[in-house]
Every structure is written in C-alpha cells, then in structure tokens.
Design a protein around this nucleic acid. Structure first.
Lengths: 247, 247
DNA sequence: GAGGCCGTTTGATCCACGTCAAACTTGGCG
DNA sequence: CGCCAAGTTTGACGTGGATCAAACGGCCTC
C-alpha cells in the first residue's frame, strides 16, 4: 500500500515498522480498529532492535523508558537475589510484551535475555501513555494486557505452590503448545528454546527432575523427546495428569 | 472544609467518601496533586461497601466492572482449580487495590474474601479509565500500581520457586511488618488475620510446616508467637535467615 | 462453668524431589 | 576429524517437608 500518506521519510522504513501490516497485530493490538486508528498506532513504535541469542534486552536495575513487543524470537526473564539464587519468571514469544515490570519504579526489576536471535519493537512508554489518553481502545487494550500478566502470574503461583513435578511439566508443555498454536505453528511439535535448567528454574525444580519427568512422559507414551525437540503424542494424557489430586 | 463546592447532595456524604481527606490517600492516590485534581479524583469512588468477616467481595467468574480500594480491614484472594486444590494468591490491607485481575477478561479470576470486617471504596473501572484519559498523573499512577502488582507476583514466584520453608515464613513476616509500618502501626508487633492454613497455602506449605517454623523461630528467639499475635524480636535474624544459600 | 468446635501444636513416619556423581550426546572449533 | 565444553540423562542416596495421628488451647454457646 505505497499510496498511504507516510510521516516517515523513507517508504521502506514505514513498511518495515508499521504495526498495521505486521502479521502479529492480532496479538499486539486492540481488535477492531479502523484505518485511521491503525495509522495512529503505527507511530507508537519508535524503532526496532535486534537482540542476538544470549544477549540482554535489558537488565535489572536499568532505567525504564520503553516496553518491547517481540517481533520475532524468544526470550526469558529472570530475577536474582543477593545470595546468588535466581528464578526464571517467564518465557516470552513473538507478539508478547516485555518490560511491564519496569513501570512501577522506572527501573527494570528483572533481566530479559534472548534465547534465540530476536527482534523487538521499541515502544517508548511516554508515547504509549500519550496515545492511550487519546485512544480509548488502546488504553483499554493496554490495561487488559497488564491484567493478563497478573492473571498469568497467579497461574504460575498456583503451579509452584500446589503442583508436583510432573504436573508442572505437563502444564508447561500444554501452555507452550497453546501459545505456539496461537501463532500458527504446530500444537504438537516444537523446539524448546530453553535448557532443562531454565525450565527447572521456571517450574521450581532441579534440572535432573525436569529431565526425569521428560523421560517418564516418554516411557508412558505421552510425548516424544529428543533433546530440545518435543512432540506431544497425547494432549489428553497430559491434561489428565494435571488434574490428579495430590496424595 | 464545609465551604467547598460539593457536587453531591448531602455534605456529610461528601465528607464520608472524599479521597481528598482520606487518611490513606498517600497509599491510594498519586502524589503531588493540586486541590483541583484532588476534587476530580473524589468523583472516582462511586460508593462504599462493607464486607463482613468471611464474606466475599467478589468471586471468580463474576462479571468485572469495578476495582476496590480497601478503606479498612483485611482480605485474602485465592484461586481454585477443578480438582479442588486452591492457593491463596495474596493478602491485602488498607490502602491496597483489589480486582485488577478482572480487567483482562472482564470477569474476576479469583475470589476476594474479607478476613475481618472491612470496608472498600468502589471504583467503577470505566470511570477510572475516563478520568485517566484526562489526568496524566492518575493514568501514570494507575499504571505504576498495576506494574507493582506484577513485580510483587514475581517476588512470590521467587519465594515459591527457590526458598525453603523457614525462609518463606521469614520473608512473609518481614513483608507484613513492612506493610504495617507503612500504615503507621508497629513494625514489630501485630495480629495475623489469617490462619496457619491460609499462610501455608500462600507460601506453598502445609499448615503443620508453618506451625513448626513458627515454633522454631520462637525457640531461636527471633519472634514471640501466641496464636495469631506475633512479636518480632530480631528483624536482623529473620533477614539473615533468608539469605542462607540452599544446601 | 461445662461441652464442643475449630485452629494449632507436636510427634512419628514416609516419600518426592534434591543432591552428588558418572556417563553420554551434541555442537562448535582448531 | 577429533577435541572440548556445555547440556542431558541416569543411577544411588539423602532429606525437607508432607502425611497421618493425637493431644492441646481458645472461644463460643447454652
């Protein structure tokens, strides 16, 4: 659509950073926008940033001034306390937001690390707030996204507080499957971008326990694993596993 | 201040529900508002609601249309899954907000139960969004509050994922102490509003384990406990306990 | 002031997961 | 092609907290 009036100098640039023709827009943006609103939203993204595998998008303590929408790639966030212990607080994939934790104190409270070569859209937070004041739909969408994050965290607390090892891993795999599905990938077959240690940290387990649970699932015919490659053979089996009472 | 122009019919009513002369305003409201802004904020609270001990403020699944600021009292929030397991996701005291989890789907995702006779200010969410669009300070404050909730949840995930029983309880007591302090109560002496079972649920422990940890802390001279009455004798001791490496 | 209920404490035992250790698999690199 | 490092698997053993059980303490009712 080269006939669109562009505020940026170079047409190529516009096409590159426009939310309005990003194939992730269903994930990032409020639904049901008209053309005018979409174009306004395009202004939100000030730039894009590539983050190579293993590099930090931001670190705990750094000044916060933007949130990030993942355009491609895969991240983890983790927090660490003085004595050296750390915990992975989440894994984020394309279309999801990073950096919401930084709003509260204007400093990031966790580290965000790319688990594969990635690219993010930089959304200066002051722009977002400004545009939110003009666009009710954007405002409401943003509030929903933050709230969803809170609900998600409650789910993880549930997992950590009440589930046993195999239930946690089953919940984790089902969650990944569902998110890959939403992105048009196979629900049953995917590569894990994280190590057993990172999965364990997220699930509150040691890497050996994660590894054993994987093996057990394989023995029982629920999945096929080979290193980071996972194929789910029985979604039902995994779900049933999760609803077993403790004890 | 009876000479203030009131939009409400009865002066007494205004005084009763005005945020501007609520002694919790430092906790609820953005700092540094001028008189005009404060008066605008007063309109946010549509009504107040009393919730007797043991009653629900809202239940999971109920339609969401307002968030609640606790004026007095004490609440817990919990989630439960089909198989009967449940988990306390938080304890809330005066000046704190309840209901943020409901924004994402327009339905509450957890239950909020009063642990003592309480009173909340009802803040219709559409009002809050409306006023946020007019008042940058309110908007930013609200975003910070939501973000703080996310950071808090990460702290709980850390606790559940990496800490052992006594560390969890120490962290819990220090957190309560700090929050009571912020409200002008004694940092060292308070009544627990919740049962051992509820503490355990929050901390991912069984009630017996919580009870044993209390006893242990008492033996070691860190605290004095008698049922729900707790006196912290050594904040330092509790802090040191938390930074012990696992193993 | 006796009786009953709910929450708590304490003890004995069990088990899921952590810890320690060794072997194996994979991928990057000279 | 072979070496090395990083990640994974698997086994043997230890332990923190769960489970089961019983007694105790406060509080309410009658």
């Amino acid at each position: 659509m080269p006939q669109r009036t562009a505020t940026k100098k170079v047409m190529l640039e516009v096409v590159k950073t426009a939310c309005s023709n990003c194939n992730l827009r269903e994930l990032c943006m409020p639904p049901g926008l008209d053309r005018r609103e979409m174009e306004k939203l395009d202004e939100l993204v000030s730039s894009r940033r590539r983050v190579a595998r293993g590099e930090h998008l931001y670190r705990a303590g750094q000044h916060f001034d933007a949130i990030y929408a993942i355009r491609s790639g895969f991240f983890k966030t983790d927090v660490l306390i003085e004595d050296g212990r750390d915990q992975v607080t989440g894994f984020q994939m394309s279309g999801e937001l990073l950096g919401l934790d930084g709003i509260s104190t204007e400093a990031h409270s966790c580290n965000a690390v790319a688990l594969e070569d990635s690219e993010v859209c930089v959304i200066p937070f002051s722009h977002l707030e400004g545009l939110s004041r003009e666009m009710h739909t954007l405002q409401h969408h943003f509030h929903k996204v933050m709230s969803r994050e809170i609900v998600r965290d409650h789910g993880v607390m549930m997992l950590l507080g009440t589930m046993r090892a195999e239930e946690r891993l089953a919940a984790f795999l089902l969650n990944l499957s569902q998110r890959f599905t939403a992105r048009g990938y196979s629900p049953a077959e995917f590569y894990l971008r994280m190590t057993r240690d990172e999965i364990g940290s997220y699930l509150g387990l040691k890497l050996e326990t994660v590894s054993r649970a994987f093996s057990r699932f394989q023995e029982e015919g629920l999945i096929a694993v080979q290193q980071k490659y996972v194929r789910i053979l029985s979604t039902e089996g995994l779900k049933k596993l999760m609803s077993h009472q403790r004890g």
